[in-house]
C-alpha cells in the first residue's frame, strides 16, 4: 500500500511573537516542529505500512528549513520525502496550498491513500485536506478516529461527528483526515534518525511541477488578509482568594453573585 502524508511545519508553541507593524509572525528564534496533529496521520500511515507493506512519502510545502520536519517524519518510519519550496509559493492561502500540494501528488502518481492531520495548529483552518481531495476528485473522510477494515480496494472508517461516530465504506484511492483519537504517535528510533540524516530530500519548484503561475502564492490566493488586530489576552477578571475558615463559603457566594449578575444561572 502506497501512502502519501502531507505535513506542515509550525512554530513550537502558539505563544508566537507578532510584528505589529507588518502584521506577520516573527519567526526568528522560534523553534519549529511537525504540526502536532500531523503526528497522528504519520502514525496511522506507519501502522498501515507495517501491516500491508508498501511505502510512505511525506510532503511538505514551505521554506527550505521545512526539511527538518520531513526528516523527523523519516526518523519516525516514513520512507521518502518531498519538499515543495519556491518563493512563488509564499503567502499561499488554503486554496493555493491545496492546489500546489495536489499537483505534486499528481506528479508522483501511484498511491492508494492520502492521510492528513485534522488541521494545523497555526492556521487552524482544516481546509487543506478537503481541498486536496477536491482537486484530485478523491473520496474523502474527515475527522477519522478509527480505520476498521482495509483490503486491497476498500476501507471502512469511523468519523468523529457531532452525533457520535459515523461509519463509512469507501474505495481507494481516498483521502482521510484523522483526529487524535486514531493513534498514539511513536517517537523516532535511533535507526530512523540515522536514515533521516543521510536522506536526500528532493525539492519541487513551481517550474518542476508545471504549475499555473496565476494559481500560486499570495497572488494566486483568492483570500487576502486586509487587517490584523491583536486581541488582549488578559481579561482582567476578579480573582478571590480563599483564606481562613469562612473563605470557601465567601468565595462561592461571590462566584454565585457573579453568575447571577451575568444571567448565567
Amino acid at each position: 500500500m502506497n501512502i502519501i502524508i502531507p505535513i506542515k511545519q509550525v512554530p513550537e508553541t502558539s505563544n508566537v511573537k507578532m510584528d505589529k507593524e507588518k502584521g506577520t509572525m516573527i519567526r526568528d528564534g522560534v523553534q519549529t516542529v511537525i504540526n502536532p496533529l500531523d503526528l497522528y496521520a504519520l502514525e496511522t500511515g506507519i501502522q498501515l505500512k507495517e501491516k500491508f507493506g508498501g511505502k510512505i512519502t511525506v510532503i511538505s510545502m514551505g521554506p527550505p528549513s521545512a526539511t527538518k520536519a520531513l526528516k523527523e517524519a523519516i526518523a519516525m518510519g516514513c520512507d521518502d520525502a518531498v519538499l515543495l519550496s519556491d518563493k512563488k509559493f509564499a503567502g499561499s492561502d488554503t486554496w493555493a496550498t491545496s492546489y500546489t500540494i495536489s499537483q505534486s501528488i499528481k506528479e508522483m502518481g501511484d498511491y492508494d491513500l492520502i492521510i492528513a492531520g485534522e488541521r494545523a495548529t497555526d492556521g487552524d483552518t482544516g481546509q487543506v485536506g478537503p481541498g486536496i481531495a477536491a482537486w484530485l476528485d478523491l473520496p474523502l473522510a474527515t475527522y477519522v478516529s478509527k480505520i476498521e477494515k482495509v483490503d486491497e480496494t476498500e476501507l471502512v472508517v469511523e468519523r468523529l461527528v457531532e452525533e457520535g461516530y459515523q461509519k463509512l465504506q469507501m474505495p481507494m484511492p481516498a483521502l482521510l483526515t484523522v483526529v487524535k483519537e486514531i493513534s498514539h504517535p511513536r517517537l523516532p528510533t535511533l535507526r530512523g534518525k540515522k536514515k533521516a540524516r543521510v536522506s536526500e530530500i528532493p525539492i519541487f519548484t513551481a517550474e518542476k511541477m508545471n504549475l499555473k503561475p496565476e494559481s500560486l502564492g499570495l497572488n494566486g490566493s483568492p483570500t487576502k488578509v486586509v487587517k490584523i488586530d491583536f486581541p488582549t489576552v488578559t481579561r482582567g477578571g476578579t480573582v478571590v482568594k480563599v483564606e481562613g475558615e469562612t473563605g470557601v463559603e465567601e468565595a462561592v457566594d461571590k462566584l454565585l453573585d457573579f453568575l447571577k449578575r451575568k444571567e448565567l444561572i
Binding site: 489576552v233 488578559t234 481579561r235 477578571g237 476578579t238 480573582v239 478571590v240 482568594k241 480563599v242 473563605g247 470557601v248 463559603e249 468565595a251 462561592v252 457566594d253 461571590k254 462566584l255 454565585l256 457573579f258 444561572i265
Partner: peptide
C-alpha cells in the same frame, strides 16, 4: 487566571463541593 472573568484561588476539593451544595439549595 489571566483569562478568567472570575477566579477562585483555593482548594478545588473544598470549593466545588461547597458550590454544588449551594446550587442544590438554590
Amino acid at each position: 487566571f489571566q483569562v478568567a472573568d472570575f477566579g477562585i484561588v483555593g482548594d478545588l476539593f473544598e470549593v466545588i463541593p461547597a458550590l454544588n451544595k449551594k446550587l442544590e439549595m438554590e
